[in-house]
Design a protein around this nucleic acid. Structure first.
Lengths: 225, 225
DNA sequence: TCAAAAGTGTTAATAGTACACCCATGA
DNA sequence: TCATGGGTGTACTATTAACACTTTTGA
């Protein structure tokens, strides 16, 4: 029985994380400027190797935690990249994941120590290996998902204005959205709750703050934005 | 430099294929009743191990060819299943793919030798490991894709009737479709070409045969079914 | 002659799109 | 007082959904 497995080769398996963040300048990705060999100085995604005692999904969670200090982050598997020579020195099969984080809420010291930097998604540097392809695929998958499920709220603080929410969708879809039509749709979704609070920072007049109520959402499940 | 890679564990990496076929009885999957150890007699997907000289995608193509004799098949990666104990005896990380084949067009002898059988998708036997989960994920992904791209034609012969096409979509979406609305939509897609031919087998009256013209499709790219 | 599948249009409801002005406030 | 972002409604268009009868032909 042993030979059934033993005659087959084994491979290093890695995970790479496409970490999305959002602020008034739009979408950004948290990238690594490598401060160690191999590929010292090159830009890459945050990644790591799968270990014996962890599932591939958990490896991705661990890597995200190691680089950002964050737990309980929304993540989705994007796909596996398995070209023979995708890394030049050794064969590594890599599983890509995307993560959506609130850009105000991560361990800045931890990111700094790892040489992590935010890069605006339309101004990315060149990246190692097939990481640009991973990002492209992640972006499309995230866009599709965001249009049919309320995942975008992971990119916002708990309280947000409708202008913020709209500009988030404009960044995700990379196209302008009509303000009145947008607000009409949002008004129909009672899981996007108005609060009593006003945000005074973003404008003179102040803007109503809203909150995503997952409990109400789970009951209704009609989302289309 | 060597240690950068060497300190990390290596894993067996497998591929598993969810092979869809379609005929008048609806969608079916091509499954394996294992005729060798381990797990002799159990039902499973058709799978195999990734080898040193092939990409993961090519391993999936090879496995499909070995079991069905088919080349140039429409395949998509579904995802990677990496739970630590998903196979009881050894750790294997498996990448699932789905394939769409024309059920009239495969090497029957080859399938027979491997102990392959078609099983209707709503009457599947219990399967090894996490293969049922893979199938569920594949089915959803295929459904989504079929609604926005003309992949379904891979499941049909080159010439097909509109009744066949409709019943295919009913099988994919697992819900009935209105005949007149369906045919109206199809009529708007000029890449679904009427031919001069009539199929006399399926009914007394005979039904017009149609064909998918990929060349016309590539120019228009408006598909929504 | 009849069973079995093929073929064919209209109407109502819904969802999506386009579009421009007043409001409140702090500097 | 004015610059800045916040907030609001209506008319048009496109898409989708519902619905039933006639045709052809081989057995």
């Amino acid at each position: 029985m042993a030979t059934y497995y033993d005659i087959h080769p084994k491979f290093h398996v890695a995970v790479d994380c496409i970490i999305f963040g959002f602020n008034k300048d739009g979408l950004s990705l948290l990238l690594l400027k490598r401060n160690m060999e191999p590929f010292f100085g090159a830009w890459s995604l945050m990644g790591g190797f799968v270990q014996n005692d962890e599932s591939v999904d958990n490896a991705a969670k661990r890597v995200l935690r190691e680089y950002t200090g964050l737990n309980e982050v929304y993540m989705e598997q994007v796909g596996t990249f398995g070209a023979v020579h995708r890394e030049p020195e050794e064969r590594v099969i890599s599983v890509a994941y995307y993560a959506l984080i609130n850009i105000q809420d991560y361990d800045k010291k931890c990111v700094e120590e790892h040489n992590g930097y935010w890069a605006r998604i339309d101004e990315l540097p060149h990246l190692l290996f097939d990481h640009e392809e991973m990002i492209e695929k992640a972006r499309e998958q995230m866009r599709r998902k965001a249009s049919s499920a309320p995942i975008s709220f992971n990119l916002l603080p708990e309280l947000f204005t409708l202008t913020q929410l709209q500009s988030l969708y404009e960044a995700i879809y990379d196209c302008p959205i009509d303000k009145r039509n947008f607000r009409k749709k949002v008004a129909d979704m009672d899981f996007i709750e108005q609060t009593e609070l006003i945000d005074k920072k973003s404008s003179r007049r102040g803007a109503r703050l809203y909150r995503f109520n997952n409990h109400i959402y789970s009951k209704s499940l009609k989302f289309k934005l």
